[in-house]
Design a protein around this nucleic acid. Structure first.
Lengths: 144, 144
DNA sequence: TCTCAATGAGTTGTGCACAATTGAATTGTG
DNA sequence: CACAATTCAATTGTGCACAACTCATTGAGA
């Protein structure tokens, strides 16, 4: 028989599928907030701490300016954030929440629970999955 | 303190990061084959069995024609596959491997090992991760 | 047989992801 | 101080992902 690698045996495909399925579950929920999934991730970071430079956001999320610049422009267009050149370092652009951006946090509370409800995994399995994914991501990133 | 959901606590972000890290590890390897990661997935399916209709490929990979049509056009441009209208059902387009497409299978043998090398997980952990991701994906998809 | 709903592939439009490049601001070193 | 190297954000170009739509083909039912 063929000894080509098999799709269903590959962990990378399992990761790819699970990640797509998770964002698909989030999509209608986030649509109520007017956000896409990557936009939601940026807002999560800002809700934790602001202002954050574009570089900080990129380091936190693993995204570069090619992705973030237009995304932030759209968030600014939605009236959720503002961008301003940093005073100390004119190369930097600080991203801050508007009042509307801050207020959106409240409506976002219920978002993670929707995934948990749909996941069909026990709390222990979730925790172990989370830990294993963390190890895996760290190892993969350090191998680059 | 803020009771906004925290980025690092979210399994969805762990999935998103791990998936991106895995494709990043694959990228330089696949570049030697002239493939992107989604193109590699399509080739994996075809190496298992061909011909496959566009619909079959989509069902296998969870992609729709909006993604597959241009991707297949690029694979055809690379000379790896051919597309032909099905004789039995003129709505369908069957995708078949060219000789070059079949031959590429050999060079793709070593690809999965590269991820395993970089993963830093034991065989048991990999297996459990794979099983948990499978359960998760099935549950998420059935909740839509 | 004659609709008419369903199916399959393609196209268009929006947004994400990443490589490569540009250009301004900053830092380090002589 | 001068100036080369680095840093930071933005832009451009390619490709993936998905929604919404078009259009041809098929198949089921009146």
């Amino acid at each position: 028989m063929s000894d080509a690698p098999r799709l269903r045996h590959q962990v990378c495909f399992a990761l790819y599928s699970a990640s797509k399925a998770a964002t698909a579950v989030y999509r209608p929920v986030l649509e109520e907030l007017g956000l896409t999934y990557p936009q939601y991730l940026v807002m999560l970071v800002l809700w934790e701490q602001e202002p954050r430079s574009v570089r900080d956001l990129g380091a936190e999320l693993g995204l570069d300016s090619g992705t973030l610049s237009p995304l932030l422009k759209r968030l600014e267009g939605l009236g959720l954030v503002e961008r301003r050149r940093s005073a100390e370092d004119e190369r930097r652009v600080d991203v801050v929440l508007t009042d509307a951006g801050t207020a959106l946090s409240g409506r976002a509370q219920a978002v993670p629970q929707r995934l948990a409800d749909a996941a069909g995994l026990s709390a222990g399995e979730i925790e172990q999955l989370h830990a294993t994914l963390g190890k895996l991501t760290a190892a993969l990133n350090s191998s680059l």
